[in-house]
């Protein structure tokens, strides 16, 4: 049984465009995935594609105006507010995106220690600080005094503790020194080896591939492919979706072929495939028929013509 199971999760909110005209924006559409204990699943997508909301939805901390449908199971149980109250900040930990997630008026050390923490956790964090080469004085600093890289390390150290069973890391690496990225990723990997499940949300496909077992690729709010990390090889022959292939080939070491065009904004009136305008395998029916997710070669893909 997977530790975390996300079934047909949709996240949307109503936005006011021009005065009183309402528009429902769907940022995550019918997402399915599961993470087993000891497994690292990366969710890769361009910045601003609603990946943070996915993290917040699992933690149950979405703003009130954001609606979700579908279900999230944790250890086979529905992950509702009651269960979340038991596990938030203990078994389930979030690594947030930026320094603005730290209280600006509280010293780092005091802030890291929560009600749920005992001596064990404090000790663990101390040794994490050491490994990240954060001096002892860092605990006495206020968040605004941290550099970008230091802040990331502090944020990672809130979650990377022994009691954690599920880590949801939301863009934890940008701005970090490459050595520290390696350190942080190594720490995640180590936790995963100890049985922890990691959901690694990022726009950096390279960082994702360094540690992930599976990669879910997001495009305009939809998971268009779920592939094993091993599928990212060579010219991307084993990848299923044209967008994933394009992403892979856009990497410097794989040819540096840029992807033209931009992601469409999501609203309810889309017909056909969302990637149609940029797709190299585009065929006539792509414009009218919406691709459903289906299994191809042991992975999931949302493309009419994937084989």
């Amino acid at each position: 049984m997977p530790l975390l199971e996300v079934n047909k999760l949709s996240i949307s909110f109503v936005q006011y465009v021009k005065g009183s005209v309402q528009q429902r924006i769907t940022v995550v559409d019918e997402l399915d995935f599961a993470i087993n204990e000891g497994e690292i699943v990366a969710v890769v997508g361009a910045s601003g594609s609603g990946k943070s909301l996915l993290a917040h939805a699992i933690m149950g901390i979405l703003p009130k105006n954001v609606e979700t449908t579908g279900s999230i199971l944790y250890g086979g149980e529905l992950l509702d507010e009651k269960l979340l109250r038991r596990h938030r900040g203990r078994e389930i930990a979030l690594v947030p995106q930026s320094i603005s997630f730290l209280d600006p008026l509280m010293r780092v050390g005091k802030q890291l220690h929560t009600r749920a923490d005992g001596e064990v956790q404090d000790k663990e964090r101390d040794s994490l600080f050491e490994r990240f080469q954060l001096g002892k004085h860092v605990a006495r600093l206020f968040p605004f005094q941290l550099s970008g890289g230091m802040a990331r390390k502090v944020l990672v150290s809130t979650a990377a503790l022994g009691r954690t069973r599920l880590i949801i890391a939301d863009e934890p690496t940008p701005g970090m020194h490459p050595d520290d990225v390696a350190e942080a990723l190594g720490r995640f990997k180590q936790l995963a080896e100890g049985g922890c499940a990691v959901l690694f949300i990022t726009h950096d496909i390279e960082a994702a591939l360094r540690i992930a077992d599976k990669v879910a690729v997001f495009y305009a709010g939809e998971a268009i492919e779920l592939a094993a990390a091993d599928d990212f090889k060579g010219q991307g022959e084993r990848l299923r979706h044209p967008y994933t292939k394009a992403l892979w080939r856009a990497l410097p070491q794989n040819g540096f072929e840029p992807i033209t065009g931009t992601q469409p904004a999501r609203s309810s009136d889309v017909q056909g495939c969302l990637f149609a305008a940029r797709c190299s395998s585009y065929a006539e029916d792509c414009k009218t028929k919406r691709p459903e997710s289906r299994e191809v070669r042991g992975g999931m893909v949302r493309c009419l013509h994937a084989t």
Binding site: I61, R88, P96, F101, T114
Partner: peptide
């Protein structure tokens, strides 16, 4: 938000 995510 983050404080909530940490169980506060």
């Amino acid at each position: 938000l983050f404080a909530k995510a940490r169980g506060e």
